[in-house]
Design a protein around this nucleic acid. Sequence first.
DNA 1: CCCACTTGCTAATCCGATTTAACAAGCTGG
DNA 2: CCAGCTTGTTAAATCGGATTAGCAAGTGGG
Lengths: 344, 344
Amino acid sequence: MSERRITMADVARKAGVSSTTASFALAGRTDMRISDAARARVLEAAEELGYRPNVTARSLRTKSTQTIGLVSDRITTTPFAGDVIRGAMEAAREQDNLLFITEAGGDPAAESSLVHALLDRQVDALIYASMFTRYVTPPKELFGRRVVLLNCLAPGFAAPSVVPDEVEAGRDAARALLAAGHTEGIWAIGGHQALPATPEGIIAGNERMRGLEEVLREGGARLEGVVECDWGTPDGHREVTALLAQGHRPRALVCLNDRLSFGAYQALAEAGLSVPGDVSVISFDDQDIASVLRPALTTLRLPHYQLGRLAVELTLRGGPLEAVVHRVPMPLQERASIGAPATG
Amino acid sequence: MSERRITMADVARKAGVSSTTASFALAGRTDMRISDAARARVLEAAEELGYRPNVTARSLRTKSTQTIGLVSDRITTTPFAGDVIRGAMEAAREQDNLLFITEAGGDPAAESSLVHALLDRQVDALIYASMFTRYVTPPKELFGRRVVLLNCLAPGFAAPSVVPDEVEAGRDAARALLAAGHTEGIWAIGGHQALPATPEGIIAGNERMRGLEEVLREGGARLEGVVECDWGTPDGHREVTALLAQGHRPRALVCLNDRLSFGAYQALAEAGLSVPGDVSVISFDDQDIASVLRPALTTLRLPHYQLGRLAVELTLRGGPLEAVVHRVPMPLQERASIGAPATG
DNA sequence: CCCACTTGCTAATCCGATTTAACAAGCTGG
DNA sequence: CCAGCTTGTTAAATCGGATTAGCAAGTGGG
């Protein structure tokens, strides 16, 4: 890529020692005796020449490339990606590792091909990531390798998983509602996904609902109804419009994600209802839009950054990887969409 | 990372030839004579053993790692990232390359450190990316290397740049308005950034305005006013609210980005004005929100995917990189926010 | 004075490919 | 019949480090 790099041989020559000595001195190893003088000369020569080790060459011998490969289904189409990658990257960087990012678009052939491309480059570990929480069957090339599953679960595949703690998030949503005094007129929009048209609903939706119902029940409240639907903005708009048209008068809406909430906001505004004066709204995900809606949306945040970070940290911890499911908390972003129940 | 890989020596042994022959046969090279029989035996042995070349070892000799490093200021906080990375990654993949993704967070020290980490891994080329179009001063480590600037400009730094064609987008915005019959009551929200509080405005804002004003003028129309402000949703809301409060009655709003448009939508709705019945809105960027606003927002799309793709393609083209500015078109996403001018 | 130890350092090998140099066997033409 | 050319193949060097094995010089005890 450009002019010749300084090699360790150059450093050794300048310091007047053998490359063995240079290698040990530079590595700071003490299991071979080197005089302080020689060590100092090597370090100084390296400094002066601007020596940088060739990681590629090194890894040929050491079998460690200080490199991690991440394979995901999609890195776009979802706001998930950026933060996951950043978390992963920062964690990697803290231990002098770098990240290969790849995307297979859900195509198994592409997945295999990418895993191969990564293995050909001798990555130290692989992260298999999904952009929404779901069950996956990792490509066979991944078996027996050092793998962490990010935002997905693969029963029978011996690897740790890192996923958001959706059940607890559901509980927290219920707690937030109860704390504001809501016990009646609570509707869940996008809940239960018996026939999941929206794949996100399979795990996230069901677990959120589970936690929600559990704590509402314990708190002496209950859901007045559950609307099953897809998770897009238009779905939220359509379903809430329909709900109101049927004469229902919800006091609180638990929207299973922020896009649904945005649709709900639109429908409520069109019906002349105010948030949170007439209807409180609590949501999940904390996409960008949540903070700029008016009123700003109270929501349980998907811990993207933390997920990416933890996945990398696991691969970087020494020792074998245990097939444990790590659940990362989804913090409550308290904003302005929850109020006391409307009276009357 | 796991059990011993099959090496070329294994293949050669199984095929009963030297590793030299195996190497040439596998590389499909014809500049050394190999009998068809031997060639076939090597290929077959490789196939049977599931041989995969060790790219790390290869690159030690060939000096090419088939790897590209991308250094960006931020990959999060902006919807820009996902598509850029995807475009870059796909282009890389088409030529058997892989991408290192890194983020420096705008910190020069981190930038240098990351560039070093990439160079230590012998990347074939580097992409220096910004998440909004602006002038940059690349770290000195990048001088003399194979570099492409992505979404940024660095006068005096000998490298090609890939940026969106903002001026033409401004022109297209004007054309869209003119085509719908707008010649009066046109306001630009977020235009001109004399003292750019919003760094995005420095290039994108000014160029968009330039193209806009140019074509409006040619079309016999003109801007009734330009509102200077930051580029967030609250800014759009506040400024448009203020505009209306001052008694202005705009027929068309050119919002310099989608967040401003969203804020404008909120303000217009609060004032009881409909889009596009009372006021047409045209915007720039095409973030996710643009398509789910009601009515859906007509906007000029930032060609993130194409930018990423082109940057990688440039690095992968043989020969030296020329310091040319490549301007990628911003396609008009026609949706529902432009209508005929309100009469009266 | 000799042997055993320590100290400090280096020669040689290895990692897994690519590439250069060279060589054996067969064939051809004078 | 031999020099010279093809043809097919391989030994050896190379890339830039890490690692193993070993060696020379100095020290100390008996």
